[in-house]
Structure formats: C-alpha cells, structure tokens
Design a protein around this nucleic acid. Structure first.
Length: 489
RNA sequence: GGCUCCAUCAUCUAAUGGUUAGGAUUCAAGGUUUUCAUCCUUGCCAUAGGGGUUCGAAUCCCCUUGGAGUCACCA
C-alpha cells in the first residue's frame, strides 16, 4: 500500500490539479464593477474594476458593469458614459449591457413584496422624528444606536398619516461569518452590528444593501471583488441572501488605497479622476501596471503587460493591508513604457497633446532622442516643442556661465563652418563639423558646446547638440546662433 | 465610542517556522554623457513594542501601542 501511494502520488496530485482547473471552468466566474454615479471613474474604483476584469477574463468568465443609482438617478447615464470612456481609454471592457439600478425598480419591489408575503419583512410606522429620538436616548445611555424592533410583530392598527418603511427581519442573536478570500473568516456578532434594517424607504424605493444583494444574485455574480470599506455591509447583504434563498457569492474585500497621510484617498488628494491621468500624459499601460502592483505582487516582477497580469493574477494573493498611493513609482513606470514604445505609437499618442509629427522628416531622431527623457507624454510633447521652437528667453545664469570670453567669436567661426558645409543630415554630420572646429581652434568641446547649447536651447541642459541640429536643420541652426549672438553680446 | 480590519526599509512589496531579511521606487555617491536626462555600478534604509510556544519566530498565540474602515429612510 505504501509503495502504491509512493508510486502514484505524483500522478494523483497531477490529476487533482487538472480537475481543479477543469472544475473552475465548469462554474463560470462572473464578477462585477458597481460604481455609484459620481460622474467619473475614480482611481480607487479603477483598481477594483481592474482586478474584477482580470479575474473574469482569466477564467473566460463575465465582467458586468452596474450603475448603482437608486438614489441619485439624475446623471447616471452621463456617469456611465464617463466610465465607459475611461474603460475604452484603458482597454478594459465589460460584458453585456450596462445595468442601471434605477431601471430595475419593479424587480426590487417584487422581491420586497415577496419578503413581506413570506413574513420575512414588515412595515414599520415609526417616523423619522421618533427614530431620532430613540437614537438620542440610546446614545445618552452609551448604547449602540439601533432600531428596537417595535413593529416587528405588530398586528394592531397602524398610526394615521405615516408612510411606513419596510424592514427586514434580521436574526436576533448569534453571529454571521463572512468567509472572505482576502481577510479570512470575519465573524460579526449580531448584537453588535445588526438590527431590522430598512430595505424600502417610505417612498417605496429600495435601499443599497438590499438592491446589491438582489442584483448580485440575479445577475449570477459569484465572485464579488470590492473595497474593504464594504466589509461591514456584507453581513447585512448576507441577511438578504438568506431571506431570499440565494447562494452567497465568494467575497474578496481588497484593502483601500490611502493617501500620503494614511487616510482613504479623497478628492483633496489631487487626481482621483482616471481621465485626469490621460490629460497628464500617463499611458494606460503604466497606470494599470501601477495599480495592479498596489496590494498584489508576483515575486520580484515589476513590469506587467495585460497578458502577464491576466496570467498571474489571483484574488487570493491580494494583500491584507492598505497601501499608500505614491506617484513616484507611477512616474517611473510611465517613463519605462514611453522609453520602450515605438515611435509610430508615440507619434499617434502625441496628437492628443496637439503635436502632429507625421510631416517632420527627422521624426525618428527626434523621438529616439527625447523619449529617453520624458516621464509622461505631456513631458515628451513639451520637450519636443522646446526643440522645435527657437528660444525666446535665454537663461541668465547659463548665459553668464557659457557666453563669456571668446564664446561669441567661436560661435561665429562655427556658423561659418556650417555655412560652408554641404549634405548635413544626420547627427553624425553635425558632429563632424563640431569636431573639425575643435581640432582647428585647439579648444575643448565645452568651449563650443556651452555657447551653442545656449543658442539652440536657451539653457545649459538638453539632448545632444548634434541631434538637435540634425532635427532643426542647418538654416534654423544658423538663425538661432545669429539671434543668440544678437541678444547676448 | 461600538464593531471590524491592518502592522517588514520613506514608499510598493518578497521571504514551506531555519536567508547575511530579497527586489523595485525614492534618495546619495561614482561611472557613461562636452551638459541635463537616460543607462550602469555601489551605497543608505525595515520585521511597531512586550510577553509566550519552539532547538529555532518577520512568520504561530496573547497583550499593548499605532493606523484604517464602518456604524443613515447615502451608496
């Protein structure tokens, strides 16, 4: 028997793994992203959306987009549009039609009625004033503010002139355990967190914890990946699942993203709108790569393509602790992706920043030289215009440092040499001219480099001068030298 | 305040109970570059504190401290 096990053990585990993945495929993974309509896609929302997307796609499942607009339905369509736009920019997609909770009121009403009929929910005629009064009394006694269940078994005549709310009959004792894929089992005592919470307001509209549970169940969502600020809502939603006889999905509550102060990211922290990152010149690759590494990792790997994210991501590997949102790494990633992007792609993307390079004959040189230096597409665009337009101001300190001694004379000599040179195209051609001058005059490279740099760029930093001259051409080079001499001597 | 979660460099994170606590970003120094940036090399920097369990703890348990989230007829 021992020998049998020993021999077959590898095969057994192999089978187990095989059936494991097969089993996974049989139950299709359905995830969802369910934002409330704020008008734009929030950076924190994007992270959970990305994780839901990755997991659904990896498993050939579905990723559903649902707009949670039960209360503020005014601009939910615009909000959804903004989210879809952002998804489009990022290359994410959702399956099926966008679901609007505001259009599903009939469904919710039906399920509320069902609970009423089953005796699992009841009308409560307590007015808001009475409720507030009760709360204040409880607070004064340092008790937890909760509904006291006074209408739970009410059979008398309801008071006049009060539109009732509907409350669900929550368990009165015991505990509820959320089996969370990230946090582990989280146990809540009923007495600490539950009361008969409202599932329909006086005007008949359903409340959040009710509709979320109903929708998730009805839409077949079996994997809920969401922010851990929802963890304490989960027991309430489980009460609804229970009452309606629905299967409870697998929960993954991912930690919040914090700001530098260690608090939940808010509008005050600057760019929370995902599209603001597009405006700033970040690429989708960089942003997604940055976000996926917040709270998740795969060994020492830092750079992930979309395919690699999909290949390696598993929500069970998400960290338990919150992470701080730090743009330095995003900048590094962004620079990395720009450096490694093809010039064709870059030129395409730069059009969004008002730069049309298709007609420029030195486009390749220009982009090769500058993409090493840019953190964002906006940077790149700025760097390009900096070269393409002649300097209007000359940095004072630079002039003081570089435009002294016989600088003007050397510049003149260089200009003359340029004029008499033919067939100047590539950086190397201009380099030869500089070399010739340096040799002839028996000076260091810096002697011509510094004043020339000021003439061309207006300052002492920037890309190689031979490349700059090659890009702007002989005539423009001469013109800039002349202007610089005129302005600074 | 109640409940819940969390705790490794400044930041993002690795580490079957056995590593010299690893990588990346930032920062610093050096090299390359006539300059700046890139790039390369090197360096600085962490297991919150205290108890246990164990031959051995960043890892398991307890306490303390600190932080966060949440407590609506908002979502």
């Amino acid at each position: 028997m021992m020998i049998f096990r020993f021999l077959f053990y590898p095969f057994l585990t192999n089978d187990y793994l095989k059936y494991g993945t097969l089993f996974k495929r049989l139950i299709m993974v359905v995830t969802r992203f369910a934002p409330s309509p704020t008008g734009y896609l929030h950076i924190g929302g994007l992270r959970t959306a990305l994780l839901c997307y990755l997991w659904a796609r990896k498993n050939n499942g579905k990723f559903i987009l649902r707009i949670e607009d039960t209360d503020q339905s005014r601009n939910s369509v615009e909000a959804a549009e903004a989210i879809v736009q952002a998804f489009k920019w990022l290359g994410l997609s959702h399956d099926g039609e966008i679901e609007y909770q505001s259009q599903r009121m009939d469904i919710y009403k039906r399920y509320i009625q069902k609970l009423l009929d089953d005796g699992k929910a009841y009308h409560c005629y307590m007015s808001k004033e009475e409720l507030n009064e009760l709360r204040e009394e409880q607070m004064a006694r340092k008790e937890r503010a909760m509904y006291d269940g006074r209408y739970r078994d009410f059979t008398g005549t309801p008071p006049e002139g009060v539109e009732p709310v509907v409350r669900i009959k929550a368990p009165l004792n015991g505990s509820i355990t959320v089996e969370d894929g990230v946090k582990g089992d989280v146990k809540f005592e009923v007495k600490d967190i539950l009361d008969d919470f409202i599932i329909a307001r006086a005007d008949g509209s359903p409340t959040y914890n009710f509709v979320v549970a109903v929708d998730d169940a009805l839409m077949g969502i079996n994997t809920v990946i969401r922010g851990d600020d929802h963890l304490s809502n989960t027991p309430k939603q489980m009460v609804v699942y229970e009452a309606l006889g629905f299967d409870i999905p697998k929960f993954y509550h991912v930690p919040m993203i914090h700001n530098k102060e260690g608090k939940k990211l808010s509008k005050r922290d600057g760019a929370t709108d995902v599209m603001a990152y597009k405006e700033m010149g970040y690429t989708p690759e960089a942003l997604l790569n940055f976000l996926v590494r917040l709270g998740w990792s795969h060994g020492d790997q830092e750079i992930f393509s979309m395919d690699e994210m999909m290949e390696h991501f598993d929500p069970k590997d998400i960290n338990r602790s919150a992470s701080i949102y730090n743009v330095e790494k995003l900048d590094w990633l962004s620079a990395h992706y720009i450096k490694n992007m093809s010039n064709t792609k870059l030129a395409e993307l730069l059009e969004y920043f008002g730069l049309v390079l298709s007609s420029h004959d030195k486009r390749e040189i220009l982009l090769d030289v500058l993409k090493e230096r840019a953190k964002t597409l906006q940077d790149l665009a700025d760097l390009i215009s900096e070269i393409l337009t002649a300097p209007v101001v000359y940095d004072e300190k630079a002039v003081a440092k570089g435009f002294k001694g016989d600088a003007v004379e050397i510049l003149h000599a260089f200009a003359e040499k340029l004029k008499s040179s033919e067939n100047l195209h590539l950086p190397i051609d201009y380099h030869h001219v500089m070399e010739a001058l340096v040799a002839e005059k028996e000076i260091g490279f810096g002697k011509i480099g510094q004043p020339l740099r000021i003439a061309l760029m207006g300052k002492l930093s920037g890309p190689g001068l031979d490349a700059v001259m090659s890009i702007i051409g002989k005539e423009e080079t001469l013109s800039r030298i002349e202007s610089a001499i005129k302005a600074n001597s």
